[in-house]
């Protein structure tokens, strides 16, 4: 039996509209993960475009929509997928070509939360110390690889990608709010109080459902809301 694929193809420079192209691979082609299969398909048809780099779920480049669900092609075993395997670009983002999407807006939203430590104390000689408990609070937050699986599966981000920060950026916002060494908590919270940047989240939880690193952006968003609430009480 052959492995069957239905892959979204679109080259905005030459195609009027996107179309679905079918591909087949032999069952004994040796591919284990979906990315292996895509690389074999690319040997058949080198016009197929997609991003990939580390092939072990660390770089986040090969995020795509696989059988209707966002994920990383390199860590999804072929045997877990129902055939024919439908592969599309991440939803809601402009397609540059085939499975390659433009993530500029996603990165802009990430940048908007100032994802770096803001601390105005003079730099210590070695490092800024944290207790083991303070350090533990960052677990499940710093591991994000910015693959965009969460934000591009979030309906609120589909409707307002320019104004709603999206789950990935909000997870990072919480990562720095939760950091005992950060001194900009007030300003960070001020920036999240308006009706759009944080509060477009309606706890749909697609983000947590699809995260390939098993992180929980929905909980991080809840923590930010709690922190904002405590501040006004």
């Amino acid at each position: 039996m052959a492995l069957r694929f239905r892959i979204y193809r679109y080259n905005p420079e030459s195609d009027q509209r996107p179309h679905i192209q079918k591909y087949e691979l032999d069952d004994d082609c040796g591919a284990v993960m979906l990315l292996d299969a895509l690389l074999l398909i690319k040997e058949q048809d080198d016009s197929l475009s997609f991003r990939r780099s580390c092939r072990e779920g660390v770089c986040g480049s090969d995020a795509m929509n696989i059988n209707g669900r966002n994920g990383l092609a390199c860590i999804i075993p072929l045997k877990d997928l129902k055939q024919p395997i439908d592969i599309r670009p991440l939803p809601g983002r402009p397609v540059i070509r085939d499975l390659v999407v433009d993530l500029s807006q996603f990165y802009n939203q990430y940048r908007a939360v100032k994802p770096w430590l803001i601390n105005n104390d003079p730099e210590p000689e070695i490092e800024r110390l944290q207790t083991p408990h303070e350090r533990e609070r960052l677990d499940g937050l710093y591991e994000c690889i910015l693959c965009a699986c969460c934000s591009t599966s979030c309906p609120s981000f589909w409707w307002n990608p320019d104004r709603f920060l999206g789950p990935a950026a909000l997870l990072q916002a919480w990562r720095f709010l939760a950091d005992s060494r950060d001194q900009a908590t007030g300003e960070r919270l001020d920036d999240l109080e308006d009706p759009y940047r944080l509060f477009r989240c309606h706890t749909i939880m697609n983000c947590t459902d699809v995260c390939p690193k098993d992180l929980n952006p929905a909980r991080a968003i809840g923590e930010i809301k709690q922190m904002l609430t405590k501040r006004v009480l």
Binding site: E193, D194, P195, R197, L198, F199, K225, L228, V232
Partner: peptide, 14 residues
């Protein structure tokens, strides 16, 4: 702050 109802997000949500 950005113009518009900058503070209303939290109030409405609560």
């Amino acid at each position: 702050r950005p113009t518009g109802s900058a503070h209303t997000g939290l109030g409405e949500w609560l």
